[in-house]
Design a protein around this nucleic acid. Structure first.
Length: 188
DNA sequence: AACAACCTCAACCGCATCAGA
DNA sequence: GTCTGATGCGGTTGAGGTTGT
């Protein structure tokens, strides 16, 4: 076990050279059999690591950074609907990865939500950042749990909220319309 | 200028699920 | 049916950067 850890380059940042090798092997063999790809590329990385690098960084048509207001709004709505199903949420945002959305949520949106909640609660209580983080993560877990136990009623409630676009400006509505066309199955 | 505290995000880990033998 | 390896997902960590004191 320890010897494996020694041999593999775990935790280190990927170099341009590694990226190049990985991309070349994937071009030839396709993005599957990651263990084989890792071996063929001659990288001291495990297959999992190669897969993650490809999905989050090297894959074509990846958008990086600059999450627009519309995208942010969509993430908020989808999170409300789906909970921490990052891959599902990412699937609705072309070019975005689950990891990026998860990070964006944890570093930006969860704070916004928290602030809004505290404002709406009218609470004057103060929490340390660690306590806040814990509260957020517990809330997310609870949401997923609730979704699994009372699926229908929860979805019904959230769908009403999710599809409430009153007060949106026309450009946002048009953008949302385009998004919904991606998957008619999302429409109630 | 120096240090601490905080923030961001790439990357890893553990677990669940899937698919083929 | 079950065993095993591959894949996918969400949670967590830690390095590096930024901001505050």
């Amino acid at each position: 076990m320890a010897s494996v850890k020694k041999e593999l380059n775990r935790g280190g940042a990927w170099t341009a050279e590694e990226d190049k090798k990985l991309a070349e092997v994937i071009e030839i063999h396709g993005p599957k059999r990651w263990k084989t790809i890792a071996a063929k590329a001659g990288l001291n990385r495990c297959g999992k690591s190669c897969r993650l690098r490809w999905l989050n960084y090297l894959r074509p048509n990846i958008k990086r950074g600059n999450i627009s207001d519309q995208e942010e709004d969509l993430i908020l709505r989808l999170h409300k609907l789906l909970g921490n199903r990052w891959s599902l949420i990412a699937g609705r945002l072309p070019g975005r990865t689950d990891n990026e959305i998860k990070n964006y949520w944890n570093s930006h949106l969860s704070k916004k939500i928290n602030q809004r909640e505290e404002q709406s609660e009218g609470s004057t209580r103060e929490f340390s950042s660690k306590t806040k983080k814990r509260r957020i993560s517990e809330k997310a877990k609870q949401e997923v749990k609730e979704e699994n136990t009372s699926h229908d009623s929860k979805i019904k409630f959230d769908l009403d909220d999710f599809f409430d676009f009153s007060g949106e400006n026309p450009s946002t509505l048009e953008w949302v319309r385009k998004f919904l066309e991606l998957d008619e199955g999302l429409l109630p």
